[in-house]
Amino acid sequence: MDFGPYLLLASLEGAVGAAVLALTAVGLSLVFGVMRVVNVAHGEFYMIGAVVAWFVATTVGTHPALGFVAALIVAPLVAAIIAIAADRLVLKRVNYDPEATIVATIGILYIIQQAALMGYGPEARPVEPPFNHRIALPWYDFAAGEWFYPWGLGTTSYKLFVIAVAIVLLLGFWALMTRTKVGLVMRATQLDWDMAQAFGIPVDRVYALVFGFGAALAALAAVLIVPIQQAHYLMGGDPLLLSFIVVIIGGLGSVRGTVVAAILIGMSDGIISVFFTPTLAKIIATMVVALVLVFRPQGLFGTKAA
């Protein structure tokens, strides 16, 4: 394959990664923005999403599409319930102290990971996509002056579906935050915790809701990706690292910045992984973070240093 078609192929892979990463990172960013909690266990809620998707798919089992739709509902719910329990039992008890919550969420990370190892096992298991047509993509041959289908240049309907669903979910999230009372309450809590209480907002319950919601977003992202990547109890590491990178580059707590950075990092991660190696992609992304931290610590879209 020539460079042009190859780049298109890599970009499509990158776009799938970027879409899923944006969902995951927005969840992390929301939790940090509202609660000032650095949730080190965020990747584990992603893993829970994938594992629950596998369980649901194998239980429902009649048609992949049925299992998939069920997983889209059940997985985020399960992740949210576990997250809310973690918030009530652990984070609330340490008064959301910034340092204590880092240590606490590291603990939550290991508990969830080991529970998954015991309950689900060490195997990576595939989940069948609800549909999966191959779509060949055309490329323009400048020399011959015509469109043609290069061998190997193609994607699947499911990958395009993942991108579309992620866009819809992100738009829905944006509308929720800016257009609804629940969003107003979450933003008020983020901006001024004291004044939120002074205007009748039960900050305590908002925190539980936000932590559950952040986990649900990660789980949703995983349900989307698991037909492409397989479910495994250690799969939370990469999305956690990439989400942190995205949230730092985008500006902590900024939804718009998070989405833009997710596209940037997701695309370049996909492209560099295809042309070179995934490891190089992570090295470069980490270096970008270092540069951002040095030259623009508030992130590309952040308003002030956190």
Binding site: D192, M195, Q197, P202
Partner: peptide
Amino acid sequence: LPAHEAPRQGIGYIPQGRRLFTEM
């Protein structure tokens, strides 16, 4: 009662320094 009940019971608070939700 928890803090968020005071305003719900009818206490309006105009704090020193205004403390608006400035980005809203």
